[in-house]
Structures are given as C-alpha cells and as structure tokens.
Design a protein around this nucleic acid. Structure first.
Lengths: 211, 211
DNA sequence: ACCTGAACACCGTTCAAGT
DNA sequence: ACCTGAACACCGTTCAAGT
C-alpha cells in the first residue's frame, strides 16, 4: 500500500504527524508509545532515538495542533478584536482533533510549548502603546480560559458521542436543552469580557500616567 | 503505632483523605491505586468496593481540595470583589497541595466535580440583579483562568524545586529575574480584568434593557 | 459489608547489540 | 544514523473466593 519499501527511516516530523493522526482517531488514552511505533512499523524503543521521552513527543504534537495560530493576520485589528479572534482561533485549533485540548493543556502547563496567543497580541498592543505587562496578563487570561473551556467542552462532546447522558438528562429536566447549548455563544461572551477588561485596564493606566 | 488493631475497615472518606495525603507527599504520578491501597494496609482491588474506578476516587480527592471554597463569605461583597476573592481563594486551595491544580483541572473537565465559583458568585449577582447568563459566563472564565494559571504556576514551582533551571537561566539572561516573579501580582491583575469585563457587560445589558 | 489472591492486558523506559 | 530484542519495574481493572 505505502509507496516506499519496508526499510524506511523516520524523522521527528514523521513521528509527530503520525501521532497526531492516531490521537484524532483513537484518543489520548490510546496514544501510547507502542501504538505510535506500530503505526510507523517500528518498535517503541526506536522512538527514543527521536525524542527523549513521551512528554517531548506530545509537545511536538501540541505544536502541530497549534500551528494554524500563526496564520491569524492581526495587523489591521483593534486590540479587542485581536483578543477575540485569537481566542476563537485557538478554540478552533483545539476542536479540530480529538482530545487536543487536554493534550495542549498539559504541554502548556509543563512549559514545553510557547503561548499561542502572546506574540500576536503583543504586536498589536505595542502598536497601540499598551504596556507589555498588561498585554502579557491578558494573553495568559485568554489562553488559560480558552484551553480550560475547550477541554471541558471537548470532554462533553466525546461523552455525548458515547451516549452517556442522551436519554435521562433531557427527559428529567427539559431546561437542559437550553442550559447546555454550548454553541459558542457563551464562549464568545467570555472572550468579550476579557477584552473589555483589558480596555478598562488600559484606560486606567493612561489616566494614572497622564493625571 | 496506629490506634486500632489491624482488622479495621475503611470508608470512602478514609480513602480520599489518605489519597490526598499521598498526593501532597509524593505527587500525582505516584498516586496509584496500589500506593493508596498500601497506605490503607489493603490490596488495590479493595478500593473498587469504594469507588467504581480511579477517576471517581480522584474526583473525591478534588472535592476535598476544593472544600475551603465554601468558607468564603460573600454576602457583604460587591460583584467585583466577589470575583477577585473567589479567584484568589481558589488559587490558595490549589497551591495548598502538590499537583492539586493538575488533578482538579481534569476532574472539572470530566464534569466529576461542581464549579467551585459559580454558586457563590450567583448569590451575589442575583442580589444585584445581574442576569444569570452573564454571571455563569464570568464564573467559567474565572474558574478556567485560575485553574490553568495555577496548573502552570505549580508546575514551575516543582520544576524549580528539582533545580532544573536554577543555574543557567538567570546567568544567561538576567532579565529572567524580573520576567518570572509570579508572586501573584499578575494573577490578581488578570482577575481584575475579568471582574472589570463583567461590570462592562452588566452596564451594556442594563443600557439595552432600559433604552 | 469489606477484602484477598491471582490473573489479564497492558504501560514508559533503558540499553546492549545489530546494520 | 537509526533501529531491534529483551528486559525492568511497573500500571488499572476484574472477579471468584474468603470472612
């Protein structure tokens, strides 16, 4: 089936690409070194030539998931719009692959991947004269909120797909139909709150420096 | 040493209490069913009489970690103060035990523990006539930000305690001393942003309803 | 009601040795 | 440079059986 004879060698990029495919297909609990190796037609121990340990491999997968963040063109945006667009794009990146939010959450916490929000937000805030300290804080708030929110959301999605609450939850309490739309409206409302909060901080900062 | 003869039986509460002690002492990776059982002088299989699986046991430990949230008395606070106090208290709860933020993060995402922010925030927002939809969104923003931020923070703390970057990081780049104070000032600034954002949303809401 | 014993089907990681 | 083979020291979970 595959184009190359069985004796092929692999690169770090091959490994993380195949790992991402497996993540999406079988989920994080089944993303084991042995399974990744098997998909590459190799033994698990071979992976340790490319990566020092599993966490490093998973960090490479996380970086792959976050790659589309770089395509967001923020040059013409206001600060508030940038916050909302980067947050929305981050959520899209995480929803694009099964269990991606959980994986990225841990890579970020371990400090093995860079902030997917900070650099682009900073170009805009610097352009507008917003102090770096404020934009760094806002970038953290956006990142942690989006990753946590989407982690929870993604968990509910796969729980629903296993039919774990389809029947009784909606019959016992009809409110649930409206109580858990989770169509992204709440998400965008929260992003707007953080963006508005940043604006307030900026105003307060310029007031104290001027007056 | 212990007061009772060796034939003692256990309850769910005993189990989660001992598990929390082990978490704090040895960390999440070593919090295995076998280690918990050993600390209770019992076999791992015995734990499955008390809990259906490990995630359920960990959820009980998470609930224990979050218990001090109930002691926050919000009755006399403004909405903004409530957001900041609940956020700060949540961070304290998570920093009180090793790896607690990581553990609680996953229990929350799996939906196995209730929001540690929502109920108390809602009593205050309802008192002030803030619509439930806004306060629910704010509660989510606060919760996800605090858990994510503290997860990252706690990971750095234990990394530092293992001396993983003490030497070269500060010598190569002296800015790092100021770049990572992480003394909580950034944290409180971010909480204030979310609180301010909520205030803005409330004002916008009442304007549209009135005018 | 609460636990043991033993097994099942796995893990991540190391390392000498191969090509 | 890249991988195999084999081992080490573990996992979570199930279930018949004990008391």
């Amino acid at each position: 089936m595959s184009g190359s004879p069985s004796g092929r060698r692999h690169t770090r990029d091959d490994v993380s690409e195949v790992a991402l495919r497996l993540l999406d297909e079988y989920g994080l609990p089944d993303l084991t070194m042995r399974h990744i190796a098997a998909a590459l037609e190799v033994r698990a121990s071979a992976l340790y030539w490319h990566f020092p340990n599993k966490q490093a491999l998973l960090a490479a997968v996380s970086a792959r998931i976050l790659r589309p963040m770089e395509d967001v063109r923020v040059e013409e945006m206001s600060v508030s719009e940038t916050v909302r667009r980067l947050g929305a794009r981050l959520r899209e990146c995480l929803l694009a692959y099964r269990d991606a939010a959980e994986l990225v959450s841990s890579s970020l916490a371990l400090g093995l991947v860079d902030s997917p929000v900070r650099p682009q937000l900073m170009t805009v805030t610097r352009r507008d004269g917003v102090p770096d300290s404020l934009s760094r804080v806002a970038a953290e708030a956006v990142m942690h909120f989006v990753v946590g929110y989407t982690f929870h959301e993604q968990q509910r999605l796969t729980a629903d797909s296993f039919g774990l609450l389809a029947a009784d939850a909606s019959s016992l309490n009809p409110e649930n139909a409206t109580a858990r739309p989770s169509d992204g409206g709440d998400f965008e409302e929260a992003l707007k709150m953080i963006a508005d909060g940043l604006q307030v901080s900026v105003r307060q900062h310029t007031e104290t420096s001027t007056g």
